[in-house]
Design a protein around this nucleic acid. Structure first.
Lengths: 344, 344
DNA sequence: TTGTAGGCGTTATCAA
DNA sequence: TTGATAACGCCTACAA
């Protein structure tokens, strides 16, 4: 039989559609017994309400969408879990929407906002270089979570939660310098990057400068554009080239953990060792850095706290408790087995 | 200003709503110039059509949904990419819907089918033990991709694409036996599991039997229920317990690569070595098995082929070219550095 | 506590 | 090539 509607159910039950609607939506104005009867009929006939119709009619729904760019990143998994938990705790429902690499997240957001009558949006990952005019089409509050922003964006215009990529990167390179390393290679985003890749690279440069180490451009290795960015493969390939170049270095800082894993592999394959021949450090705090052998020194981003704070700010915005907020969490330098002091 | 509708646009343009609709949907019956004019107005006013209304009205849309259980699994990333590419190539649009661990994927599917007027569904991951009655509520074709099915399901009732988990598991354990290993531990799903975990365990048992090796239950290690299943952490914790138990073994077969990585870590931490003290093998063919040090022997599932075939079958079903199909792909035994012959 | 009727924004039908 | 109008399935004043 063709799909049932609320009208069919009403007919079968011998009641009006309103009553059925009330039963479905747990409205108070309905007697327990009619409700039970209706629900029974619904079960028996496998009636499922059509969400499109509901969304169309509803003026507002209690739902939050999380838009995530690059779902590949294992770093987001934990965050999504926290988002879901926190959003459900607030009795809101939760939509996870993947945004393709070559899709515009704002356009997706605008469309989704209308379709689902969203109450708020979380943007996760990606670069976020959008014109103000476009952002203004978003009529519900939104928070950028772990998204590096270039400074030309007016902080008054948006809210965000993240670590200070510049500072944390600095922290790591500073640590490597203090171990006595002077020739520190970096594996980073292409120079065209404007987001976290750039921020972390700037931290590297600053740390070197503060230690009186001149920048050696031959030790600045950029990911290949044609390979998935921040992937193990990219780290592997780029490190192979670095090793083949013959340029000397004693430590390698990869701006993401996956890159670091790929780098380690390239080093091992060349017959060298981590950390005896090269110290290697990553960034993010992925689980794999703990499980890799040797375990990999990294900057752990406090994902749970970041996710929780993101939701807290979003709801404050929704409840109009504030206009905009920016929260920066400190990262944690996890010293592991992949980095050791420089030895002559 | 409040959100625009197609009526507002029609008024501004001085045309009827139908004409606007035609412009939006690239209908043939409209002159190029009015269309251009309308599109210009739409751009200027940032009009975005409401999807709920479209879905409600449309009788059918060319869209395929991929429902994925346990988005954590990195194994799915590549598959999703292929799905997206193939679906777009067919000029269909693609929806990725995450299904929570404690959600019923069929119910999600039924709801989504109505909401989005789906043409077809792909189920990815999970266990899939559903009653026939429920499956029958799905009125569009669907394909199970890389989902282990217990034999009691009638193959006439559904379509599927996967590897033969039993056979591939057998292949791996057989290989370990041929290396001379006799005491082979397995890291597998809890015995209550009915899906791939069970199938892979059965393959292990059969291979041991065929080599005349009695099953030692102390070497059958089940994942902890309270830890994320098939995770590195689970492999780590369970292997620590195995090592602590003092039960002797020379090889360890983990039914997933992530478990294998965790196992390796536990072994290294105990002061032992892979592969010198213990050979370790995984299953799935994740990238990390190549990048780990030592690289990990595994069964590679041909993800691209599986994904492509899934879509091919789905479209054959949609176009009524067949009733049901089951495609089994062979896995590939990737012999790496984590397994070596048994030495006295 | 229950039912009737109108409208959410779009597309499809049909007539102009 | 265009436009008026009736659905699509549901929710919600408002009336009973």
């Amino acid at each position: 039989m063709a799909s049932m509607t609320i009208i069919d159910i009403a007919k079968i039950c011998g009641v009006g559609v309103t009553t059925v609607s009330r039963a479905i939506n747990n409205h108070p104005d309905i007697s327990e017994e009619t409700k039970a009867m209706i629900m029974k009929v619904i079960k028996e006939n496998h009636f499922v309400p059509n969400n499109s119709a509901r969304n169309l009619k509803r003026s507002a729904s209690k739902t939050i969408a999380v838009l995530i760019k690059g779902i590949t990143n294992p770093f987001f998994n934990r965050m999504i879990q926290v988002f879901e938990k926190e959003i459900q705790r607030k009795k809101y429902s939760f939509i996870l929407q993947r945004v393709d690499e070559n899709q515009d997240e704002i356009e997706v957001a605008i469309e989704l906002e209308k379709e689902k009558r969203l109450k708020g949006i979380v943007f996760l990952g990606g670069y976020f270089s959008h014109v103000k005019e476009k952002l203004e089409q978003l009529t519900v509050p939104y928070v950028l979570s772990t998204i590096g922003m270039t400074p030309e964006f007016d902080p008054q215009e948006y809210s965000s939660v993240s670590v200070d990529d510049f500072k944390e990167s600095y922290k790591m390179v500073d640590y490597l310098c203090r171990l006595g390393h002077q020739k520190i290679a970096i594996l980073t985003a292409p120079m065209s990057d404007v987001s976290i890749g750039k921020l972390r690279y700037e931290g590297y440069k600053q740390a070197l400068a503060d230690h009186g180490i001149p920048l050696n451009e031959k030790l600045v290795c950029c990911m290949k554009e044609q390979i998935e960015s921040y992937s193990m493969e990219n780290g592997y390939v780029v490190t192979q080239e670095l090793l083949a170049s013959g340029e000397e270095f004693t430590a390698l800082f990869a701006v993401s953990d996956s890159l670091a894993v790929g780098a380690c592999k390239a080093i091992f394959e060349s017959g060298k060792s981590v950390p005896d021949d090269y110290s290697v450090a990553g960034f993010d705090g992925l689980d794999i850095t703990f499980y890799y052998h040797p375990s990999i020194t990294t900057i752990r981003q406090p994902v749970e706290e970041i996710a929780e704070e993101t939701i807290r700010i979003l709801f404050d915005l929704i409840n109009k408790k504030m206009t905009h907020a920016h929260k920066i969490f400190p990262g944690e330098l996890m010293i592991r087995d992949s980095t050791i002091p420089y030895k002559e």
